[in-house]
């Protein structure tokens, strides 16, 4: 276990096991995972299909609860929180980026980004400021009135990133964020995530699942999952990343 300052620890995963039950069958997916992330960490999770990457990401993001062990994120013990508490907690602390962007097709880019803010008590004007600032970060301010179908895949993913950061969460989780993009758009997304991780005003802690070694190289740490276990770790990957 590393010796990090308690304030800075964002994610603690301790002896986590996760099984799914289908009919009478028990499917063990994660069997004893330990992991810590502190503010400003950028972790890439790799591993073969079915190794449990998404499952682990969902646990860290508070979408699911472990079968045993503890998941403590931003001070909240997620395994002991109710569904309602988790939902509230997610809206405050986590931004989601999905492989298929998952924008709401009937809402414009602006409205999609505004969506998480409708859960807050912010005034209309404050919401407007936040939405425009977030769209500016991803460079799509001029596209705010467009609907998702009027945008390219890369642009959609940038809007999704704006939606993920608009509430200024501590943690960003991304499940194969470049999995559906061409190389150029993928590079833009990775650059954007790099900025969100490194620039002082953001300093987001990021957990990204990816199959793409180039994408993983941009992270500070790479973890490999195999058959429910963490098998290898590459730390301080940053030097390589910045050289590229």
């Amino acid at each position: 276990m590393s010796n990090l300052n308690a304030d800075e620890t964002v994610v603690v995963v301790r002896d986590v096991c996760k099984e799914f039950h289908r009919d009478q069958l028990t499917i063990p997916v994660l069997s004893g995972i330990n992991l810590e992330l502190s503010t400003g960490d950028y972790l890439a999770l790799m591993g073969p299909s079915g190794s449990g990457k998404t499952t682990l990401l969902n646990l860290i993001a508070g979408l699911d609860r472990p079968t045993s062990g503890d998941v403590i994120v931003c001070g909240q013990n997620l395994g002991q929180s109710s569904e309602g508490e988790l939902s509230k907690w997610r809206s405050r602390h986590v931004g989601f980026i999905f492989q298929m962007y998952n924008l709401i097709p009937v809402l414009t880019a602006y409205e999609n980004v505004e969506l998480p803010l409708t859960l807050t008590s912010l005034s209309r004007r404050d919401r407007d400021d936040h939405v425009k600032a977030a769209l500016e970060v991803v460079g799509l301010q001029d596209r705010m009135d467009h609907y998702p179908r009027q945008l390219s895949g890369g642009q959609e993913q940038r809007v999704a990133i704006a939606r993920a950061i608009v509430t200024d969460p501590t943690l960003l989780v991304a499940d194969e964020p470049t999995g559906d993009l061409d190389a150029k758009s993928a590079a833009e997304i990775l650059d954007l995530m790099h900025r969100l991780n490194t620039e002082k005003e953001f300093r987001k802690t990021i957990v990204m699942v990816t199959h793409d070694p180039n994408a993983a190289d941009r992270a500070r740490r790479i973890l490999h999952l195999e058959k429910g276990l963490l098998v290898s770790e590459v730390t301080d990957n940053r030097t390589r990343a910045t050289v590229q």
Binding site: A61, L63, E83, G84, S87, K88, R90, S91, R92, F96, F98, M100, N102, I104, P105, L115, P116, L119, R163
Partner: peptide
């Protein structure tokens, strides 16, 4: 279904 799941993921209460 997916869309509702996304809403719930970003914190929309039941």
């Amino acid at each position: 279904v997916t869309e509702i799941a996304v809403l719930k993921a970003i914190g929309f209460p039941r």
